[in-house]
């Protein structure tokens, strides 16, 4: 008894001394469990044979590969177009800069089905750009291109904002010094600015890739077939119910968990000059 009361006493005195830490830890635990429990439940719901069966189902595997691949292309395009914009926003002032910055955040806040419809108005076969691209044989409806366009629209803000923060953190005097040492603006960018903002840019690109993988609303409006995984899960859920959709969802969650937790390790390991 004496031991127990001693333990209780020391826990109470620890809590007394670290009240903020204690309260914050409890609140943090709630939110971590809120994220963890549904995902764990999803993965544990199906037994091994069901998961195995889903994994061997060619339509599941194809759809997962298509999703990862399309999101990768999306991230690459976002990188190519988003990084320059992020740099301009971080380093320059120009008229309507605030409007541009607000506009970039819009895809995050509008319902993604609405985003899909908006894209249809521009890239649909009978509209604007869609017509021109159609003439050279590229269609954005029911195609890989359509998936990419939908993913790009909703995920590129993550990359732009992250890269912009990365560029902003770099002291402009480092670039000034590099210029006076004889570097052209291009050389300054690839020898100083980009390497220093690299971590933020990579984090943004990964975020964008992840957001692309998870996209459903905008993709389903433009491209139902070929089916990305989120559409496949939805279709199986609507047609066959829980038992058919859960294994597919579980496989996607497991793959994503491996990829993103893995990247986090790599990012943390390579921090020599911070």
């Amino acid at each position: 008894m004496a031991v127990i009361s001693k333990i209780i006493h020391s826990v109470c005195s620890w809590l007394g001394r670290h009240r903020l830490l204690a309260v914050f830890s409890i609140l943090s635990l709630l939110i971590v469990l809120f994220i963890f429990i549904p995902l764990a439940k999803l993965i544990l719901f199906s037994d091994k044979s069901e998961l195995w069966q889903a994994l061997l189902d060619p339509s599941v595997m194809q759809s997962i590969l298509l999703t990862l691949y399309a999101a990768l292309i999306t991230a690459a395009i976002g990188f190519l177009l988003g990084v320059p914009l992020a740099y301009l926003l971080a380093r320059n002032n120009f008229p309507l800069k605030g409007v541009v910055e607000g506009l970039i955040d819009l895809p995050i806040v509008v319902p993604h089905t609405a985003a899909g419809i908006a894209l249809l108005f521009v890239f649909g076969r009978n509209f604007l750009l869609g017509k021109w691209f159609n003439a050279i044989g590229i269609s954005f409806v029911d195609s890989l291109a359509g998936i990419v366009i939908a993913m790009l629209f909703v995920s590129v803000p993550f990359l732009i904002n992250s890269a912009k923060d990365g560029f902003r953190k770099i002291d402009v005097r480092l670039e000034n010094v590099a210029r006076t040492l004889g570097a052209s603006p291009w050389q300054v960018f690839y020898r100083v600015t980009f390497p220093l903002a690299w971590r933020s840019i990579l984090a943004g690109t990964l975020m964008m890739w992840a957001r692309g993988i998870s996209e459903f609303g905008a993709v389903v409006i433009l491209t139902y077939y070929p089916m990305v995984t989120s559409t496949l899960i939805y279709e199986r859920f609507a047609t066959y119910g829980l038992t058919q959709s859960v294994p597919v969802a579980a496989i996607l969650v497991i793959i994503c968990a491996f990829i993103f937790i893995g990247f986090r390790f790599v990012l943390q390991r390579d921090r020599k000059h911070d």
């Binding site: 002291d171 005097r173 480092l174 000034n176 010094v177 590099a178 006076t180 040492l181 004889g182 570097a183 052209s184 050389q187 020898r191 100083v192 390497p195 220093l196 000059h273």
Partner: peptide
């Protein structure tokens, strides 16, 4: 014209040697 700032603005991702020869490399 070379400039040296108050906080020296050394490139944090490069070694001392790489910092020094930066101007010759470019």
């Amino acid at each position: 014209v070379s400039i040296v700032y108050q906080d020296y603005s050394l490139f944090p991702h490069l070694t001392v040697k790489e910092n020094i020869i930066f101007g010759l490399r470019v």
